[in-house]
Design a protein around this nucleic acid. Structure first.
Length: 621
RNA sequence: GCGGGUGUAGCUCAGCUGGUUAGAGCGCAUGCCUGUCACGCAUGAGGCCACGGGUUCGAGUCCCGUCACUCGCGCCA
């Protein structure tokens, strides 16, 4: 017999009846009836009930065992009687009649800081400090298994499509722009630092220049930025990929197929299978997304759409001066049509209005289109049909003809309401986007049980930095401008689009990607337009820039975030629920106690002297 | 860096308008219980009410500050 086990705790069934088996695991739960004791033994695979009674001289010893002790149990598999079968347990038709047992770990004597056999929500610091216990618990344990399965599926799908898996350096050079780097001091080169890669961006491009054609990596990325619920502090993983001799469309098709495949494969992880968008995923130009959804990461489960109705409020016969004056200063009016809500009580609209004020808006104007009146008759003008039915705070400022135009623009039907937001374009779009989300949540009309994908394409190459008034790269400096050198030389830079795309699922940004700028002369011009002289390009991106002068293929790729993919599939709101050993929000590892002070000798060796703000001196040892 | 929330037993939480002895469930300990599966029953141990200051005759409760955790903003090419 094997030293530890002949079967796992999820394996035994009626077919093992009568066999002597050995199983090993943690004591999940004990039910002590005095003369009879049940013990649920748990391993990675499942639970098996063991039973012992007072006929066995070991009874008292078993009775004394505590939860979470690790033991091996040897005994006979016996069938349960019909009344005692547990249908909730895969092994519930049998039990192991304990003959012998062996303690395999040092005995648990301390109080457990959290109970493994419970699904109570524990405080996150306790969970992180004792992550190994937390990871034993069912939900988290299964999430991590899902993560393993997703990664192996991604890997298989990439390899099947001819991609090669690479490793790239972890100790590398600091990259300008972007997030803050994690820096690692060099012992050999006093005063110099490595940086941990924010992404293997330049390496994967260099691999393309090296002629490898199709690259992928389950790539760790390090960014020293503050955490969010959907953003792990410090480090995260991407399915990083890049391919040569491709157009944007080629990249999108590959990712469509990988994402669709993985989501189809695992969409039933939480029970019922969810619908997954069929490829090709819909492609929405950035400008259209900002207009229709008020964001560059739209949740397409939300059926509501936004329309620009500035023209309507500009009309001479519209007398709503609050908007008119503002429009004169460059503001726009965005309308959100909400079907079938005109009969909602006044409180519904008041509540939304209060919410909007809470968000810093002056209020939320709306017009209601009541039922009886839009059912206009032949011969009656459209406008006549509408006039007495439009209600709401600003309806009286909008005469029938203008209402007719509004109805056409927004495809308004009887019983609808329309909300209005008037502001400068850069503010109106995101705010009406918030309204869109808020209203859909209130009405509970966000589609359930669906993973809805889309691509946002045609991002602008440059944008104005609001604070400095300077022109900057709006996504990253590596993207190819649409129209190439000619566009850079002739167009208004702010109107140039890039071959830059994001993939979105249910409002979550999974990845950015681009067709890269692999032409040195186009790079020079692109950087010049962002205010960087050629020297900066040479200094900061020298490795790649020089490589491009020695024969670079056109190439592009993207890098879907693995943690977020798993988070979506596991229906988790917090990314730490799909990471084995995450840091807390302050970027501390409470289990391993990192970051930690180092002693003076170590510091001297790397030529570092600390100069700490007063309050923190004591922490640094 | 800024704003919101939380902090009471090992864990999850309750604790009213400030009122004298601080409560429950789980876990732990002891005892009873031979078919449970979140077993049941009884008894018990376990508290710097995050920390520091203040108001008050009296503070777990009110006020101020600090710290920790968490959510969001800034940040995240």
């Amino acid at each position: 017999m094997h030293a530890y086990r002949t079967h796992t705790c999820n394996q035994l069934s009626v077919e093992h009846n009568g066999q002597t088996v050995k199983i090993a695991g943690w004591i999940h739960r004990k039910r002590d009836h005095g003369g009879l004791l049940f013990l649920d033994l748990r391993d990675h695979y499942g639970l098996t009930q063991c039973v012992i009674d007072t006929d066995n001289p070991l009874f008292e010893q078993v009775e004394r065992l505590r939860l979470e002790n690790v033991i091996a149990v040897t005994g006979e598999v016996v069938l349960r009687t019909d009344e005692t079968i547990n249908k909730n347990l895969p092994t519930g038709t049998v039990e192991v009649k304990l003959k012998e047992f062996e303690i395999l770990s040092s005995l648990v004597t301390d109080m457990l800081p959290l109970q493994v056999n419970s699904d109570e929500p524990y405080g996150e610091d306790v969970r992180l400090r004792h992550r190994f216990l937390d990871l034993r618990r069912d939900v988290l344990h299964r999430n991590i298994v899902l993560r393993c399965d997703v990664i192996s599926s991604l890997r298989r799908r990439m390899i099947e499509q001819g991609f090669l898996e690479f490793q790239t350096p972890i100790l590398t050079a600091s990259s300008p722009e972007g997030a803050r780097d994690y820096l690692v001091p060099s012992r050999v080169h006093p005063g110099k630092f490595y940086a941990l890669p924010q992404a293997p961006q330049q390496f994967k491009q260099l691999l393309m220049v090296s002629g490898f054609d199709k690259y992928f990596q389950i790539a760790p990325c390090f960014r020293d930025e503050d955490a969010r619920a959907d953003r792990s502090p410090g480090e995260f993983y991407q399915l990083d990929m890049e391919m040569s001799f491709v157009t944007q469309d080629d990249v999108l098709v590959v990712i469509d197929s990988v994402m669709h495949g993985v989501f189809e494969e695992f969409s039933g992880f939480k029970g019922e299978k969810w619908d997954v968008s069929k490829p090709p995923f819909v492609r929405i130009p950035y400008e259209e997304s900002m207009l229709k959804y008020g964001t560059d990461k739209p949740d397409l489960r939300n059926p509501l759409e936004i329309v620009d109705v500035t023209e309507v409020f500009k009309r001479d016969d519209v007398t709503f001066n609050a908007f008119k004056t503002f429009i004169g200063k460059g503001a726009v009016v965005r309308a959100l049509r909400v079907p079938k809500v005109s009969d909602r009580p006044r409180s519904f609209f008041d509540k939304l209005n209060d919410w909007a004020r809470g968000e810093g808006a002056p209020g939320l104007g709306y017009i209601l289109f009541h039922k009886e009146i839009t059912e206009h008759k032949e011969g009656q003008s459209f406008e006549e049909g509408i006039i007495s039915t439009a209600k709401g705070p600003i309806a009286k400022f909008v005469p029938p003809a203008a209402l007719g135009e509004l109805i056409k623009l927004c495809h308004i039907e009887t019983g609808d309401a329309v909300f209005f937001v008037c502001d400068m374009p850069a503010k109106a779009a995101p705010f009406v986007g918030l309204v869109r989300t808020k209203v859909a949540e209130e009405l509970d009309i966000i589609e359930k049980n669906a993973f809805k994908f889309c691509w946002i394409v045609d991002f602008p190459m440059y944008e104005m930095d609001e604070k400095t008034g300077k022109r900057i790269f709006s996504h990253n400096p590596f993207s190819m401008p649409q129209g190439g050198l000619k566009a850079l030389e002739t167009m208004n830079p702010l109107e140039i689009k890039a071959f830059q795309y994001d993939i979105i699922c249910n409002g979550v940004e999974l990845s950015s990607g681009a067709i890269r700028n692999h032409l040195p002369e186009v790079m020079e011009k692109a950087f010049e337009l962002a205010g960087y002289p050629k020297e900066v390009l040479e200094e900061r991106f020298g490795g790649m820039y020089n490589a491009f002068k020695l024969g670079a293929p056109p190439h592009g790729g993207c890098a879907p975030g693995i943690d977020r993919i798993v988070m979506l599939l596991a229906h988790e709101k917090n990314i730490r629920e799909v990471i084995s050993f995450p840091m807390n929000q302050q970027a501390q590892d409470l289990l391993m106690d990192a970051p930690a002070p180092v002693d003076a000798v170590a510091l001297r060796e790397i030529n570092i002297k600390l100069d700490l703000p007063k309050a923190q001196v004591k922490d640094a040892g």
